[in-house]
Structures are given as C-alpha cells and as structure tokens.
C-alpha cells in the first residue's frame, strides 16, 4: 500500500503540471485584466503597470517565468495586494481556513454519521423523517442565508457570540456551524442510504443471526460498509471545506483563503488565482489518495495493484 501511495504521489506531479498550465492559459484568454477597474487608468499609468508586472511580455515568456519562480517556491507578487507576495498571502490565510474546515469536517462527519445511522435503524419512522427533514433543510437553505441569520440571532439579538472577526475560539463557533451544516445534511443522507443497504446485506444478517448484540453489529459491520459512499464524498468535500468557503468568510469577516477563489478571479489577480489553483490541485490529489486508501481499508474487496 505504501508503494501504491508513493506511486500515486509521484504520478500526481504531471497532473499538477497540467492543471497549472491549463489554468494559466485559461485565465489569460478571459477578457479583462487586473488593472481594469471601476476607475479606468490613464494610458501612461497602465503602460507603466503592465511593464512593472511583466504583462507586456509574450505570454509564453510569462508562463516560463511563472514556472521558474514556482519551482523555487515563489508564487510571484499579487497583482492586487501589492505589498505582499502570493505565497505570503496564502500562508497567512491557509492555517485559518484549515482550522475552520477541519473542525467543520469532523463535526459534519460525526453528526452526519450519527444522524444517518439513526435514521436507517428506524427507517420510515418519525425519527427517520425528522432526520431527513433536518438534512433537507440543511441542504436547501444556502450558506448566504444561514450565515447572516446565525450572526444576527446569536451576535446582534442575543449577544452571546461575536458577530465577526477572528482571534478567539468564540469567533469560531458560528462559522464552523455554518460551514458544517450543509455537509452534515449530505453525509447524513448518504450514510442513511447505504446503511439501509448494509443492514440488509448478508454478512450483517449473518452476524445478527449469530446473536451478536445489535449495537456491535451496527458499529462493527454495517457502518463499515455504510460509510463508503460518504468516504468517497469526503474527498471533494474536504478539499472544498479546507480551501474555505467564500460566503462564510465574507459574512463573518474571516481572514481565510476561500474568498480568493472568487475574488481573485473577479479581480483578475492572475498570480493569486494560480496560487489558489495550486492549493486546490494539491488538496484534491492528496485527499483522493486518502479516500482511496481508506476505501481499501474499509472494504477488503477493493484492492489496488
């Protein structure tokens, strides 16, 4: 398995290279540049800026320069946030996004699995419907509604928690809930579905027939199989959560990196967008590997050669 993991990681290098190349040229084909803003710039000024940032050079040259810098660990200067380099910006925000995303992911996994299992065990009862209802609500009501409502209720009206900002643990509670809620919903539904299947499968039936206590059967046998779809969902979900969520970050004014994904693109901050692309690419590769390994661990039928 270790050999497999290593091979996958080495194999990921060309993948990441293709991603970077595709993203770089895709971005440049899009109309508009980093200096096209509400306030149009004077022609001379624009020329000076383009020269300062090397935008006046041929595209392949810029691409080569970018790759050269990247290999040396330099992601270049941000086109918009001119006092910082992209890797500095990302290094500032990434730990915060990771902290938020990880907490939300664990919370979602725990609560989601619990709810899903509960619903499956009591299929077509009130408990089941209640779980589905909660889950549906979690998916229906988008972040941009949930997050401001949470902040309004708990910060402005009740004054229990801070409305925004980053620094102490109390400021983490509301954003984590807002981030976790939709994931709880998804995981609960996926687990419920596969749990029902697993409970009916023969080895669980057999285990029950052997007289094993039902709780143990659920935990040991059924859950192991039932969590599989949730695990394959976790790969993309983790990448999405860890790279932050633009809405939650904006609503709670958090200094994470999530907002750079959309804003960077809207600002045409080329280097910053490339930075986010690299991060996503790495996350996707790593998390998919983890998911595949987890799969092999949870389901002995799956084998990688």
């Amino acid at each position: 398995m270790l050999v497999y993991a290593l091979r996958r990681l080495v194999g990921a290098i060309p993948t990441i290279f293709i991603i970077i190349t595709a993203a770089f040229f895709m971005m440049r084909v899009a109309p508009g540049g980093p200096f096209d803003q509400e306030r149009t710039l004077e022609a001379t000024v624009m020329a000076n800026l383009n020269k300062t940032f090397g935008l006046d050079r041929p595209l392949y040259e810029q691409y080569g320069m970018y790759l050269g810098n990247l290999v040396r660990g330099d992601m270049g200067p941000s086109f918009i946030y001119r006092d910082k380099r992209v890797h500095e910006i990302l290094a500032e925000g990434l730990p915060i996004s990771m902290q938020l995303g990880m907490t939300a992911l664990l919370l979602a996994l725990a609560v989601g699995t619990l709810l899903g299992t509960l619903a499956a065990l009591r299929q077509n009862t009130k408990t089941d419907y209640a779980v589905i209802a909660v889950a549906t609500f979690g998916i229906t009501v988008p972040n941009f509604v949930v997050a401001p409502v949470l902040s309004l209720v708990f910060a402005v009206i009740l004054s229990w928690l801070p409305a925004q900002g980053w620094g102490d643990w109390r400021q983490m509670i509301l954003p984590v809930i807002a981030l976790a809620l939709p994931q709880v919903a998804v995981i609960a539904r996926l687990v419920r579905g596969s749990m029902i299947e697993a409970l009916r499968s023969d080895h669980v039936r057999t285990a029950r027939a052997y007289g094993l206590p039902s709780r143990m059967v659920v935990v040991k046998h059924a859950l192991r199989a039932a969590i599989l779809p949730a695990v394959s969902y976790l790969g993309p979900a983790a990448a999405a959560l860890l790279t932050g969520s633009i809405v939650v970050e904006q609503v709670f004014n958090l200094p994470g990196i999530g907002r750079y994904f959309v804003q960077g693109a809207l600002n045409r901050d080329y280097t910053l967008v490339m930075g986010t692309v690299v991060i996503v690419a790495v996350f996707v590769v790593v998390f998919n590997l983890i998911v595949d390994l987890l799969y092999a661990m949870l389901d002995p039928r799956v084998r990688y050669d």
Binding site: I19, M26, F261, V285, N288
Partner: peptide, 24 residues
C-alpha cells in the same frame, strides 16, 4: 488511474474563469 486524474484536473481548474470563457 488516467480517467480519475482527468477528473482531478477538471476539478482543480478555476470555475469562475471557466464560466467567463463560456460567456465569451
């Protein structure tokens, strides 16, 4: 392996630019 790497690549491309290009 190859097919899933293609998925990874598509997944990592910046969506906003994808949309802007479609419009263009």
């Amino acid at each position: 392996n190859v097919m899933m790497r293609v998925v990874d690549i598509l997944y990592s491309l910046p969506f906003v630019f994808f949309v802007i290009l479609l419009v263009v």
